[in-house]
């Protein structure tokens, strides 16, 4: 392990307390409880339609639960009005499934959007321009600043989405299926960027995915700021238990709106539950 360990902060960023949500007769979320702290990486696995995206949207207050409480940065967001939520949401970065970029404006304007939209003091356009180029350089797409999202490939759109999510350096970043529908090489590039962002900013990450490999990479690799590469956190590339889980990665598994597993990679791999073990390829 070459990179310094992130400072462990026990501040609670996101708390779900017995959250339930139904759409007509369909149960989207049921009895969801967990607490996410600063410095943690949480990987939510689950089959399509298991409620992963709904959980992520509920965490942002985009969908309101029928029951239970959701606390974001210690503030209960269930009952807040939309305008009151804006200030809290500005501290959260989010990457939507297909990037969620605005089609009608350029890549540069998309990335600048969170900066220009914040209800803070006016910032100079030069500063915004510099930050946009920096954010796009981070995802290695600075040449696309004047292009429109429709001119980019799926993987590039997601990389721009990551740049937009992290330009304000938020303490918590939510990723909704960042690798869905991408080829393995592009998917690895995206995950490497997410790990790089996590270890550059010490941000907490909540990653919703169907691919175990995404979580495996987050749990066992760390970005080395000195040489600019991803490196395994231990000799054999595996996190073994809490003490040697330096990336503080916790796996969660969802099934039909319920949280059926919460634990480390080792606990996940040791699970004998037939549903949970389906997410862990045999060779790991």
């Amino acid at each position: 392990m070459t990179a310094a360990e992130p400072k462990i902060d026990t501040e609670s960023l996101l708390l779900f307390d017995n959250v339930g949500l139904h759409f007509d007769d369909v149960t989207a979320l049921e009895g969801i409880s967990f607490e996410m702290r600063a410095g943690e990486t949480r990987v939510i696995l689950g089959a399509a339609g298991s409620g992963k995206t709904t959980l992520l949207k509920a965490a942002l207050g985009l969908i309101r639960p029928d029951s239970g409480r959701i606390l974001l940065f210690g503030r209960q967001i269930n009952d807040l009005k939309e305008k009151e939520l804006f200030a809290i949401r500005s501290r959260v970065g989010v990457l939507f499934q297909e990037g969620g970029l605005f089609d009608s404006i350029t890549v540069g304007e998309n990335v600048a959007y969170p900066l220009l939209n914040r209800n803070t003091d006016a910032i100079s356009m030069d500063h915004v321009g510099t930050k946009v180029v920096d954010a796009l350089r981070f995802v290695e797409l600075e040449q696309t600043v004047d292009k429109f999202p429709s001119e980019l490939s799926g993987g590039m759109r997601r990389r721009v989405g990551i740049a937009r999510a992290v330009i304000t350096e938020p303490p918590l970043v939510l990723y909704d299926s960042p690798t869905a529908g991408l080829d393995p090489i592009t998917a690895n590039t995206i995950m490497a960027l997410i790990a790089k962002e996590r270890d550059s900013q010490n941000a907490a990450n909540l990653i919703v995915t169907q691919r175990y490999q995404d979580g495996q990479l987050m749990a066992n690799f760390r970005y080395n700021r000195t040489n600019g590469h991803l490196e395994p956190v231990s000799g054999n590339g595996g996190g073994n238990g809490n003490e040697s889980n330096p990336t503080h990665t916790i796996f969660m598994v969802m099934k039909e709106g319920r949280l059926v597993f919460e634990g480390t990679q080792m606990e996940l791999e040791a699970s004998t539950d037939s549903y949970i073990s389906k997410f862990v390829p045999k060779h790991y």
Partner: peptide, 18 residues
């Protein structure tokens, strides 16, 4: 409608715009 199904409306709300 296209903005809704491509999650641009959600993105807008998430980025603090009504």
């Amino acid at each position: 409608g296209s903005m809704k199904v491509t999650e641009q409306i959600d993105a807008m709300r998430a980025l603090g715009t009504d």
